[in-house]
Nucleic acid binder design. Structure first.
Length: 351
DNA sequence: GTAGGGTTAG
């Protein structure tokens, strides 16, 4: 086995966030007399940064330098991304200086990464400053850059800036992509402009190339949220005609709505047809279903879905568990005990 | 021949 094979393995496990496996392979390659190369290090550092283990990521960074490997822009970007996500901005500045000292210039991905984290924290003004800086430095913004910045302006409701950026991007010959439209649809909806969102969505259907299932999910979710269920249902039914299939988010949205309005048989049927269509429920979805059912007081039905969480060895999320505990504190613990899987009876013991 | 950034559920 050579580096290539090990790196493919590491990256496959890293994608699934299987940290134990990744570290095992990383150690094993060394035992086989093959020292990890810059790509091996880069992949592991990316994984550790993504899951917030910045101390471990930094150890590996220092270790690779000790071993005479020079970290490139990609490794710096992974670390910077991790520190941005956990809000350690002083570390971001530190690494940025270190990067410059090493003679490495920030690239488009660097700017996009930092701008995105700023935007998600509502700091769009600083993101705009970085945008101006990157242009000044001659680093070319790409579609991602524009999408990120538009998302930032949408997040804080600065709609006129969004239109300006859209015009600007078109005027320099840059084509908005599916994600641009998805960001616009989502942003318009969340700013109470759902009919503008619908206009963009319909343009996508008619002229501007294909929506993705995510476009449908965003539009369906927005319509359901403001009580326009019939239109949402029409979109749901139209997914297949666009050569797409609903995914777990689509089904989650529709099923949750059915539970909310009390159409429990229909929601069960949709769940069954979802899994028959090869879309398996995940932990997040099952937890959400259980919570909705408990909130509607549908305890036996909640029990059915709780069993599925068990069977599949998923985790009962804290918010789900606390709803069960709330049943007990309302004095209903004893009454519901027989209706729920045995495993959960301790949550129903009255305090 | 391998590693990075932007969109949807809460």
């Amino acid at each position: 086995m050579d580096h290539y094979v090990y790196n493919i393995l590491i990256s496959a496990y890293a994608k699934e966030e299987m940290v134990g496996e990744v570290m095992h392979i990383f150690t094993k390659m060394r035992q086989q007399g093959l020292n990890p190369d810059a790509v091996s290090y880069g992949t592991v550092i990316d994984l550790l940064s993504r899951i917030g283990r910045m101390d471990d990521a930094m150890s590996l960074f220092n270790q690779m330098i000790t071993e005479g490997l020079a970290p490139g822009i990609i490794v710096f970007n992974h670390l910077i991304s991790g520190f941005c996500t956990c809000g350690k901005w002083e570390k971001v500045h530190e690494l940025f200086s270190e990067m410059l000292d090493c003679g490495i210039c920030p690239d488009t991905v660097f700017f996009n990464t930092v701008m995105d984290r700023l935007c998600k924290n509502g700091r769009v003004t600083e993101a705009q400053d970085l945008f101006d800086l990157m242009v000044h430095m001659g680093v070319k913004p790409d579609v991602c850059t524009y999408n990120t910045l538009m998302g930032g302006y949408l997040f804080v409701g600065k709609m006129d800036e969004v239109s300006k950026l859209l015009d600007n991007m078109v005027s320099i010959g840059m084509e908005p992509d599916v994600i641009t439209y998805n960001i616009l649809i989502d942003g318009y909806s969340k700013n109470g402009r759902i009919d503008d969102a619908l206009v963009v969505f319909r343009e996508m259907l008619d002229t501007k190339g294909k929506p993705s299932v995510i476009s449908f999910n965003i539009m369906i979710g927005a319509l359901l949220k403001c009580g326009r269920k019939a239109e949402a249902k029409d979109l749901f039914d139209g997914i297949w005609a666009n050569g797409l299939v609903p995914d777990i988010v689509t089904y989650s949205l529709m099923i949750q709505k059915l539970i909310e309005e009390g159409s429990l048989q229909e929601s069960d049927d949709l769940f069954v047809s979802m899994e028959k269509n090869g879309c398996a429920a995940n932990s997040r979805m099952l937890n959400a279903i259980v919570r909705s059912l408990l909130q509607k007081g549908e305890v036996p039905r909640a029990g059915t879905y709780l069993s599925k969480i068990d069977e599949r060895s998923f985790i009962l999320e804290a918010s789900t568990a606390s709803l069960l505990t709330a049943l007990a504190s309302r004095g209903k613990g004893q009454e519901y005990k027989e209706l729920l899987p045995e495993k959960y009876s301790e949550l129903l013991i009255e305090a």
